[in-house]
């Protein structure tokens, strides 16, 4: 009886939303992209997914055990990190590099900084950046999807080829149709090529209210607008649709940039953050040495996030300045 009365600080009203439920929603939203990756790049991509998820969860378990903290693998955040990392790797990546990436993501970037919610950058993207710098050869080797009607693919398992952005970087004319790019029938990372699958995921996340629409909209909008303005043949000659559909922009804008721990808290802050991500992406894509710049753009804005938060503190009700 004496336990019926207890005192605690606010909030007193609680929703039944839990970390586990949100992470499960993210996994559900990622399923279309994963399936699209397996359809277009074959069972090898499924192997990469299984390897990174298993390595990520195992790393989380060992790290929590070793650090003497409570187990957190049941909140599914390690599985999400592993899945996101796999979707950001090329299908032909050696499995051991994918596993090293998962260990870096969960062990180094997430757990060493204090675990879920304490990481200063998105673990999957941070790991991807480290892998890109370390093993550039493996991280930029792309394979054609299975449904490309090229003659060479009939006899050889994997043929190195160029992504839509890579073609653009070389200054060549693109041979990819918008429909193929929308469906995902182009070379690229496992989960990034199919815009359709990612949009399905986005719709689910918005429906479940896991994320708000601000970051994806302003991120993609900034990229579309600036690639249109900064076209190759002068002002307003760019091809915004090509830039939006190619590379990791959509998966980055929907799943990476919206990570709770590393994006600003207020609506105003999120809009600033998303525009920054978009501007940096365009800067890296058009003027950088690498073809793709989404991951580095998001990582840089992750680092700036605490500063954005500091300058976008909302005014408390009644705390407005006195009107003359």
């Amino acid at each position: 009886m004496e336990n019926r009365l207890f005192v605690c600080s606010s909030p007193h009203l609680r929703d039944n939303v839990s970390t586990r439920r949100i992470m499960l929603d993210v996994i559900i939203a990622l399923i279309p992209a994963t399936i699209a990756g397996i359809i277009f790049f074959g069972m090898r991509s499924a192997l990469v997914v299984v390897a990174t998820v298993a390595a990520s969860v195992l790393t989380e378990y060992i790290m929590r055990k070793g650090l003497g903290r409570g187990q957190t693998i049941s909140d599914l955040s390690a599985a999400v990190t592993g899945l996101l990392l796999a979707l950001n790797l090329p299908p032909s990546i050696p499995i051991w590099i994918a596993v090293v990436g998962a260990v870096i993501a969960t062990g180094l970037i997430k757990q060493l900084f204090g675990g879920l919610g304490q990481n200063f950058m998105n673990p999957a993207l941070g790991a991807r950046a480290i892998l890109t710098v370390s093993w550039a050869r493996w991280m930029t080797e792309w394979t054609d999807p299975l449904f490309v009607d090229a003659v060479s693919t009939a006899t050889v398992d994997a043929v190195s080829t160029a992504t839509p952005l890579g073609v653009l970087k070389e200054g060549g004319a693109s041979t990819f149709s918008y429909l193929d790019m929308f469906l995902g029938n182009v070379p690229g990372c496992i989960g990034e090529t199919s815009a359709l699958a990612i949009l399905l995921g986005l719709a689910y996340l918005l429906f479940r209210r896991v994320i708000s629409w601000h970051i994806p909209t302003f991120f993609v909008g900034t990229v579309a607008l600036s690639t249109w303005i900064l076209g190759p043949g002068g002002v307003f000659t760019g091809d915004p649709l090509y830039h939006v559909l190619s590379g990791g922009l959509l998966i980055g804008a929907v799943f990476m940039a919206t990570d709770y721990a590393t994006c600003p808290m207020t609506r105003k802050g999120r809009i600033i953050y998303a525009i920054g991500c978009g501007a940096l992406t365009v800067l890296f894509r058009l003027y950088g040495s690498m073809a793709e710049g989404v991951s580095f753009a998001i990582l840089l804005m992750n680092i700036v996030t605490p500063m954005i938060d500091r300058y976008t503190v909302p005014v408390a009700f009644g705390g407005e300045k006195h009107v003359e």
Partner: peptide, 16 residues
Amino acid sequence: LFDPAVIMVLPAGGFL
């Protein structure tokens, strides 16, 4: 044995 991780000889690897 394995492909060396280039990041280790870059400044970021130094800090790590």
